[in-house]
Design a binder for these strands. Structure first.
Lengths: 144, 144
DNA sequence: TCGGAAGAGTTGTAGAGTGCAACGATATCA
DNA sequence: TGATATCGTTGCACTCTACAACTCTTCCGA
């Protein structure tokens, strides 16, 4: 076993553990918000409005899945749909006021968790780790 | 926004992306093996046999969930159950020959994917990233 | 020694999340 | 105008999951 292979195995194993933990704690993020729902809200806010098709493409989900998630979020009053005036097939999704509140609360709660977890990391460690994660995800996106 | 908060947000976002990708590509790892199934096989091999309760505790799953997963793996002929002679409540799980083959194949395929993804990383980068992931997971485990 | 408590595992039930296929509505282009 | 493509919804089936109730086995204290 070379040092390179050892590192690759470790990375593989630890990333799997991260994925597993994300699933296990998904429901606990916010009483009213699943991980997918949170992700969708965050994406809508970040993009300042987007289409269901965009969400499906970005998160590698079937459009029917996104359609149902969006419908649920609308029923909860967290998002609004606005038909695109220039293309009536398209519905542009925006955050409703309540969605904005929930997202803010959930984000703060998440940040608090991360701050506790990473309290012992100094600024250099954090920045380096963040950079590595960005680099890894970019590589993963181009080698699916 | 402080530099520390920026790094925390990035880490949070990128880890979420990793979890999302893991879910999306779980089914494509091996035609016969879901991500959970692969994880269970790998854990059994690593521990050289383990109990269903161990799996449930380690992966934060309900024992009924593990029971069904294990039953499915047994039906596929990938694992064997051996009643512990010293405690007849316990079933020790072991890899069946076919399970060993499948695991070896899946692991090789996974490693290949990671090697491609991380081809541009030099040894220092890899080791550092692996160490950071281990450290992060340890922190996450102690701050649930 | 016996009886209750605890642990391991299974099964019934219910719910969330997902993909595929078929569909209607709208838009685009030859 | 008609063929084709895009956006979104709905019916259906399947997997994964947790909770609760149950059986079987073991352990421990009176």
């Amino acid at each position: 076993m070379t040092a390179r292979n050892a590192a690759l195995e470790t990375i593989q194993r630890e990333l799997t553990a991260i994925a597993r933990r994300a699933r296990a704690t998904a429901a606990q993020m916010h009483p009213e918000l699943s991980l997918v729902a949170y992700t969708i809200l965050a994406h809508i806010e970040e993009q300042q409005g987007c289409r269901a098709t965009d969400l499906a493409a970005h998160y590698l989900l079937d459009k029917s899945t996104v359609s149902r998630q969006v419908a649920a979020l609308e029923r909860l009053g967290l998002i609004e749909r606005r038909v695109d005036p220039s293309d009536h097939r398209v519905q542009v999704l925006h955050l409703a006021p309540h969605g904005n509140e929930i997202l803010t609360t959930a984000r703060a709660s998440r940040r608090e968790t991360f701050e506790e977890r990473l309290a012992a990391w100094d600024q250099g460690d954090l920045t380096r780790f963040a950079d590595d994660l960005v680099r890894y995800n970019a590589d993963a996106a181009s080698h699916p």
